[in-house]
Design a protein around this nucleic acid. Structure first.
Lengths: 154, 154
DNA sequence: CTACTACATTTGTATCGACAACAATTGTAT
DNA sequence: ATACAATTGTTGTCGATACAAATGTAGTAG
């Protein structure tokens, strides 16, 4: 269904507005679905994202700044996001030795375990959401999104 | 720049995960930019979206439910979002005559005026964000996003 | 008419997030 | 060495948001 139908917009939009609208709408469609499957595990998409980032580091510690940089949606307050993960005992925080301004965040065994379990249903959900597109269409989509973000003013 | 580079992900992701990650990241990239240009006008993307929806109705009243349905990102509390627009005198709320459960929301002259002014800078921003893609690439992107959302289970 | 269900919005509450001020540490220039 | 700026993270505050319960209205079955 084209985006104007979905949002019941009467007149046809210029292609540039259509694309951005479609991108935002589809992005929300995806993140709502992810949030929905995460809900039973009592974890937010942001928290899940952080756990994945930490797992990707294979045990190596990570500063808040590094986490921030790698998050899908940048946050203004990573401290308190990580606090929630500490409360759940999914991560641990220690002061960094070499630079005492920094903190070292690492994922715990419990965090890895939880991540593994949650990833199963997220993977399923992700596969289902993309099953309308072939691999080459997905590649095409990736290429277009990358090109879109190539801002000459940056 | 490919998404793994941008988010510094070491291993190459399966195409399906790449696409969803890219979609979410690029969606945030767009909405952050829109929020940034709206900021000086002291209006949120959501509020701006509602004003555009109401303008699209050409003076015809709109219920909260209708607004909700047409919003890019669905909200759990449209009442209070509209309250903010009322406080700014951009919209007016009256009880619907034919069905007193509903409320009629209409955009005011002041709201239309503000929307017109704000739209100028938003249009510019939108044009700039998409200037890396040709019209046919934008059409292609739209088609892929539409196809992605074609969920067989809905 | 009454009871019951569905609908549309509002309100209460608890959490989340943005933003700015603050604190601690490190780097740098004189 | 001292002063100043930059980096990194934390905390306070306030507005935004999600979610559930409540309110008021409409439709419907008996």
């Amino acid at each position: 269904m084209i985006i104007e139908e979905t949002l019941k917009i009467s007149k046809r939009l210029p292609e540039c507005k259509r694309a951005l609208l479609n991108l935002l709408y589809t992005g929300n469609w995806v993140s709502d679905e992810i949030a929905r499957v995460l809900k039973p595990f009592d974890i937010t998409p942001q928290q899940f994202n952080v756990l994945r980032i930490l797992k990707g580091r294979q045990g190596e510690a990570c500063s808040l700044q590094t986490i921030q940089d790698r998050m899908i949606s940048k946050m203004s307050n990573t401290t308190r996001l990580v606090d929630k993960l500490i409360k759940k005992e999914f991560v641990e925080r220690t002061q960094c030795e070499s630079n005492r301004r920094k903190v070292d965040i690492v994922i715990t065994a419990k965090g890895l375990e939880a991540l593994k379990e949650i990833s199963r249903v997220v993977d399923q959900s992700e596969a289902r959401m993309t099953d309308q597109l072939t691999t080459s269409e997905l590649e095409n989509l990736n290429a277009l999104l990358n090109k879109l973000r190539t801002d000459t003013y940056e």
